[in-house]
């Protein structure tokens, strides 16, 4: 694997499992007195964020620093992009500075994919348009796996604005690849025009789905989309699809609640629900760092050069010593 552009780049359950196992090790690293290992010493990672982000960028930055990689921030608002530089020129300029990996967030689906064809550096998709957000799906999968041991046979409802959600698109593939059953719950206006080929069930009735799920994943209600007149009002959305305190009572006792953040408390999730013990929201943030360490390590560390480099003369006789 050279790039991580979508969750399918990991090649299904086996690849996702490998990231999960590696993440276990990085969770341990993160708990140490000195949470830093020299695994990516001498590597440089650059951020190319064409869209606002605080948690994803901070999470990636923390991950890279804990691996002893150098980091470079390319902030679009204060750069030559303002002067009209093209995506291609920007990416190639950054690469010419000797960058090993570029973490891209862009408002257009496919932008990281294009960049990966222009540069030799590893490209990691940190969210492109409505397309995918693979590291979010990996950290969601990891957080669930941490509680359950395995996603196999579990039922997960993804609720909210599926249409505009790259998180949903990545999560559907990750969760189903790991053996979970996924139901999308949304008003028809917030579903993609076609769900052909999606391995999911669809419902428009949250109350009917609630008692059947092992976990409920609430997507952020993107207020900026309200101009599109897809909903009568936010209040109506909350009444029909928000996880209110009353709806929590309909959940099974052990059902978990997830949210990718940032939360609109009082819209898709009631203020007090986010702080319940069944909420994994802070676990998700915590695990995000370890998952991104695992992704960076897989792409830049261990054996990533192996494919390119010829085998070195006599390897050691034993794996250790």
């Amino acid at each position: 694997m050279k790039h991580l552009l979508g969750i399918e780049d990991l090649g299904g359950a086996e690849g996702i499992d490998e990231v999960m196992r590696l993440t276990d090790s990085f969770v341990e690293v993160s708990g140490r007195n000195i949470p830093r290992v020299p695994a990516l010493r001498g590597k440089t990672v650059a951020w190319l964020f064409y869209e606002d982000s605080t948690r994803t960028r901070l999470s990636f930055e923390t991950a890279a620093k804990r691996l002893t990689a150098d980091t470079m921030n390319f902030s679009v608002s204060s750069s030559s992009v303002k002067k009209g530089e093209s995506l291609r020129d920007t990416a190639r300029t950054i690469e010419a500075m000797g960058i090993d990996a570029i973490v891209v967030r862009h408002a257009s689906a496919g932008a990281p994919h294009r960049i990966s064809r222009w540069v030799d550096a590893a490209v990691i998709n940190a969210g492109d348009g409505w397309h995918q957000h693979p590291t979010q799906a990996l950290l969601d999968t990891y957080s669930l796996r941490q509680r359950w041991g395995s996603l196999d046979g579990r039922h997960i409802a993804i609720v909210g604005d599926i249409k505009h959600s790259r998180v949903a698109r990545s999560d559907v593939w990750a969760f189903t690849a790991m053996g979970a059953e996924v139901t999308l719950v949304a008003p028809p206006t917030l579903l993609p025009p076609s769900l052909e080929g999606w391995p999911v069930k669809v419902s428009h009735d949250l109350d009917a789905v609630l008692p059947t799920v092992d976990a409920i994943y609430l997507l952020r209600m993107q207020r900026e989309r309200m101009t599109e007149a897809l909903l009568p009002s936010l209040r109506e959305y909350t009444a029909c699809f928000g996880l209110t305190a009353r709806r929590v009572d309909a959940l099974r006792d052990d059902a978990l609640v997830l949210h990718p953040g940032p939360m609109n408390r009082g819209v898709e999730i009631a203020a007090e629900v986010a702080d319940l013990p069944r909420s994994l929201i802070l676990d998700q943030v915590r695990n995000g760092v370890a998952v991104r360490m695992a992704v960076l390590y897989l792409l830049l560390g261990a054996g990533s050069d192996l494919v390119a480099a010829p085998a070195p003369e006599p390897l050691e006789g034993t794996p250790r010593g």
Partner: peptide
């Protein structure tokens, strides 16, 4: 202790941790 992240031959061969480090004391 798993030392995969500390090896100096990263790049010479695949190095993945085989198990999680467990050192619960100071």
């Amino acid at each position: 202790l798993d030392v995969a992240f500390y090896r100096d031959d990263i790049g010479l061969r695949p190095v993945l941790p085989e198990a999680v480090t467990h050192i619960p004391w100071n």
